[in-house]
Amino acid sequence: MSGVHDMGGRPNDDPIDQSQHILSDWERHTHAMVGVLREKRLITTDELRRGIESIAPQEYERLSYYERWSASLETLLVEKGLVTQEEIDARAEVLREKWG
């Protein structure tokens, strides 16, 4: 049984949805943060992919592209000890109170 990400040839009758959403700032920041950390050799593309592939299948299918990226980034930052889960949780809460 291959992973949920391994989609080549999987039965799928859906037409290709060619509509396009405008990227949000947080999506651009996610992409760029990964790039900066990669330049600094703190993470690799394959670590990011591994983090994405470790998302539970139902969750993988529900999340949007950069939601998967950012979830993987969070996993990697915590795993590498660059930030702790508690720090991210606490800061996200501060931002919720600040910005709504």
């Binding site: 690799t44 593309t45 394959d46 670590e47 992919r49 591994r50 590498k80």
Partner: peptide, 11 residues
Amino acid sequence: NPETLAYGADG
């Protein structure tokens, strides 16, 4: 090698 790069090694 992506299979080791993915787990923190140098590949």
